[in-house]
Computed example of a mutant assay.
Amino acid sequence: MALDDKLDGLKDEAAGKTKEVYGKVTGDAETEAEGKAQGLIGKAKEKLGDVKDAASDLVEDVKEKFDK
């Protein structure tokens, strides 16, 4: 479901940002990089949710046109 993808994305973005900041504060470059990567994965999941929503809307529009 698209909402699940969006929520997972937001969760990953928040966790990634936390990890990234922790890495910066502690001087741990590996943790900082992991945080950045997790944040990017979160953004990708969010975009996937947007694409799924758009595809679902398109399918509904096509169905409506054929039902007329």
Rank of each mutant, 00 (worst) to 15 (best):
L3K: 15
D4M: 07
D5Q: 14
K6F: 12
K6S: 10
K6M: 15
D8K: 07
D8R: 11
G9R: 01
G9A: 02
L10E: 09
K11M: 14
K11I: 13
D12H: 11
D12P: 00
E13I: 03
E13D: 04
E13H: 00
A14F: 14
A14I: 15
T18R: 14
E20L: 07
E20M: 13
V21W: 10
V21E: 15
Y22V: 06
G27L: 10
A29P: 00
E30R: 09
E30V: 07
E30F: 12
T31V: 11
T31E: 14
E32V: 06
E34C: 02
A37G: 08
Q38M: 11
L40R: 03
I41K: 08
K43V: 12
K43G: 04
A44P: 00
A44I: 00
K45M: 05
K45F: 04
L48Q: 11
G49C: 12
G49I: 08
D50C: 00
D50Q: 02
V51E: 10
K52F: 05
D53V: 11
A55Q: 14
S56R: 04
L58D: 00
L58C: 04
L58A: 09
V59W: 10
E60N: 06
E60F: 06
E60W: 06
D61R: 02
V62Y: 06
K63W: 11
E64Y: 01
F66N: 02
